[in-house]
Amino acid sequence: MFAYILRSLAQGVLVIIVVALIAFSMFRFVGDPVASLAGQEASVADREELSERLGLNDPIFIQFARFLGGAAQADFGISYRQGRPVAGLLAERLPATVELAVLSALFALIVGIALGVYAAIRRRGVIANIVMVLSLIGVSLPTFLIGIGLIYIFAVELRWLPSFGRGETIKIGWWTTGLLTESGRKSLIMPVLTLGFFQLTLIMRLVRSEMLEALRSEYIRFARARGVPERVVQLRHALRNTMIPVITIAGLQLGSVIAFAIVTETVFQWPGLGALFVNSVQFVDIPVMATYLMFVAFVFVVTNLLVDLVYYLIDPRLRGGLRRGRP
């Protein structure tokens, strides 16, 4: 088990490095940072000199090696756009994204599972069918529109919630949280709904179909034949078997929550990593882009590992296999 975690982590490091390498080879398609860094009056020679100073004239793999060398010492360079060390910049933005992503994931999971179970149990009911139709709309509505729609309803019309930003935050060590102030909590509502909505519909539809599948299985029929009450059959026997695919998808979705956070953070001017990344791409801020992408790869590696570990907890059939080292 322990060896398995260690090996997964080692593979994870490899994945992160490969992601960074791919990222690096892509950056020239994003643009030339000198174009954003040098002012209008810079001469051709000035720009050339800046390019040299940034090491942009070196071959890609040398630039990459330099970046990795620094990264190994937790030095991710200086942001071209902000002139500040990237590590600190990311650390400053991390709490906003984590609070948003975790709350969105919780919202999506809790409401998604509840609605999914409901829609499966009452699959012929009117409400369940309305929920299903709404979820279909939800899946096809772009995040941006959901966000703007919420802003116009709750900020412009009703004036209940702020349209942008994180509100007042409180510092706890290097962490900042919006959960401890009223304006912080109010500011979280719309971004969390927006970011979580897509995942919610996804999880809900998945739970419903998995649950229907589970309810058709023999052990459910047998549980009923044993006289197990219907609620227990549904919420203990069927739901638990539903959880394995749900956790797989939810785990992988956590990665995409971070990816979708880019749009949500932009719409709500949420000062997280996604908004930082968008600005960095537009500026071709290579150190920030590279570090961010490595961070995202890291999140994927960790969530994958966590998903595996949760499998291990839920499904006894895997335990023997895991001990032998499942890939």
Partner: peptide, 18 residues
Amino acid sequence: YTPIKSDATRVAALLSGE
């Protein structure tokens, strides 16, 4: 002074009095 990147949100913030 607050940067608001999204056009629609920036306009909304003015409309909502923020």
